[in-house]
Design a protein around this nucleic acid. Structure first.
Lengths: 187, 187
DNA sequence: ACCTGAACACCGTTCAAGT
DNA sequence: ACCTGAACACCGTTCAAGT
């Protein structure tokens, strides 16, 4: 149970954060789920900020791996753009969850500094990946790709947020499709 | 102070919600700002949910008025689309605030039912207005305008969220400009 | 009609104490 | 090394009591 407790705490905190955001991470609820007392969490994490930062860090690291895998499996950059929104889509599945870092972006002003850093890291790796993929299409220069990458990331994150309020994955798909039809996401 | 207290509570709650979201509405802090005790708020509002719903309702009502004014001042629908993002932009000004209902959308799952209703109403009046304006351009049919309206609203709301995390209004402007260049927002 | 103090359960955090 | 009970301040809410 030693290294397992830390792991179980992280998992429980991630689940709570995906549904309720950072402020929804409740030490007593997590302790119950793990089978320890809430004070025991402080043996593994020095504070709620520390736990929140660990959750967010692991989240963007996992996303980074997924992005690399997508690129490895899709030599065609256009195919990468086709697949990209599924990352946000899959967050919506299974309990209408929200992409962790997008969610925390809403609470941003109230987040501890160390959590903010990890949230920004998530956005950064997404934009960098998109810019690279766009650049590989050869459709535009690096400068333009950077700008477009930010626009795509922002629009898709917004789609996830809005679709969540309607509890409607179909709405997410429709919004992404509209982005494509409008020309925001190259096809 | 009778009717003024209710008004002062609403104003203070709106300010808190714009910065911290629904969960950031703190009865003791609001009471201090108004100059009463926190228990006194319950004389004017039956619960935090009631106060939150009143704040959100007034917010979308005000937005609805602004939208009507924009249409009244701009006979050209394209001009309306030019002005539209400034609603979200002005929320970012003065303390990096977030459009109230967009913000609450992030906390959506945890909101009381009566607050949820008002948050959805905000999105609805925005989409309806955009669909009407798009339809008036004569560029597409009603069906397509509905879809495009949802896409524009979602993308602009997302831009506000992301720009907020970077404390950078210039980023908001850049994102909106990218949407225009990509063809998402007609120009 | 409008406000208040005192009390409640809930939450992050600390700390001395247990094995 | 890992966990616990008890206590702290903070928050939404209630309620009997004040003017």
């Amino acid at each position: 149970m030693s290294e397992n407790a830390r792991e179980a705490i992280l998992e429980a905190a991630k689940g709570a954060a995906q549904i309720h955001g950072y402020s929804g991470i409740n030490f007593r609820t997590i302790a119950d789920a793990v089978g320890i007392k809430n004070a025991s969490i402080y043996y593994h994490f020095s504070s709620k900020a520390d736990l929140g930062a660990a959750v967010a860090r692991r989240y963007w690291e996992d996303t980074s791996s997924v992005l690399e895998a997508i690129r490895g499996a899709n030599p065609e950059p256009i195919s990468c753009l086709q697949v990209y929104p599924t990352i946000f889509r899959s967050s919506l599945e299974g309990g209408n969850r929200l992409c962790l870092s997008s969610f925390m972006a809403a609470e941003y002003q109230d987040l501890p500094e160390e959590v903010k850093r990890e949230v920004l890291a998530f956005a950064d790796i997404n934009v960098a990946w998109l810019a690279k993929v766009l650049s590989d299409t050869g459709l535009a220069g690096v400068e333009v790709c950077e700008r477009r990458a930010r626009a795509i990331y922002t629009a898709v994150a917004g789609a996830q947020l809005i679709a969540r309020t309607r509890v409607d994955i179909g709405l997410f798909d429709e919004l992404v499709q509209s982005y494509r039809e409008a020309g925001l996401i190259p096809t």
